[in-house]
Amino acid sequence: MTSTGITLEPLDVEAHVGRLHAWVTHPGSVYWEMPEASVEEVAQEYTQMRDNPHHHAWLGRVDGEPAFLAETYDPAHSLLAGTPELREGDLGMHVLVAPTDQPVPGFTRRVFRAVMEHCFADPAVRRVVVDPDVRNDKIKVLNAQAGFEVERAITLPAKTAALSFCTREAFLASPLVRPEEGA
């Protein structure tokens, strides 16, 4: 499994707001915390993100077609600011795979691997930080496959989150990168 055919580009809010709105308000995206957002609210959220030097949104394409949204951010300038476990070299990450009526086996794992490779492409990044809702069982499994370890549960404004970290070494040794070892 490789991330061949997967690209990430800075999100063009104006060009993709309709698609983005459909993705983040889809019932399957409940943990994205925007189920009732209007197109205008989604545009505003991602315009603010675009203008924030500490937070970046990425449109992911698979074989040229828009297929996922990723966000990377400096956790010291986020809701995680002040969390004692944060270290120099940490990069926060969120990922949302576009909802589909025809799931493709292994697709989400491929996308997740590509996003992690994108995060670790910067040699200054030592760990990737995620904060999924503790009720999100699907992402728990995927995070574990990528090498994340849950540090602890933390309370954020809209959820109780599983503060989790993945080192470069853990990712490179993970079943996501080395599926034959994880079988």
Rank of each mutant, 00 (worst) to 15 (best):
T2D: 08
T4W: 07
T4V: 13
G5H: 08
G5T: 06
I6D: 09
D12R: 15
H16R: 15
L20C: 14
A22V: 12
W23Q: 11
W23N: 15
W23L: 14
W32M: 11
E33W: 14
M34A: 13
A37C: 11
E40T: 06
E41A: 12
A43Y: 01
E45L: 11
Y46F: 13
Y46P: 03
T47S: 05
Q48K: 02
D51C: 01
D51E: 06
P53S: 04
H56P: 04
D63W: 03
E65D: 14
L69R: 14
T72R: 07
D74H: 05
H77D: 05
L80E: 06
L86C: 04
E88N: 08
G89C: 02
D90Q: 01
L91S: 00
L96N: 06
L96E: 08
A98I: 10
Q102H: 12
F107L: 04
C119H: 00
P123M: 04
A124I: 06
V125R: 02
R127D: 01
V134E: 01
V134F: 00
D137M: 13
K138W: 14
K138M: 15
I139V: 15
K140G: 12
N143M: 12
N143W: 07
N143T: 10
N143P: 12
N143F: 10
G147Y: 11
F148V: 09
F148D: 07
I154R: 04
I154Y: 05
P157H: 15
A158K: 13
T160R: 09
A162M: 01
L163T: 02
S164L: 01
E169G: 08
F171M: 05
L172E: 13
A173D: 13
P175H: 03
L176R: 03
P179T: 00
A183C: 08
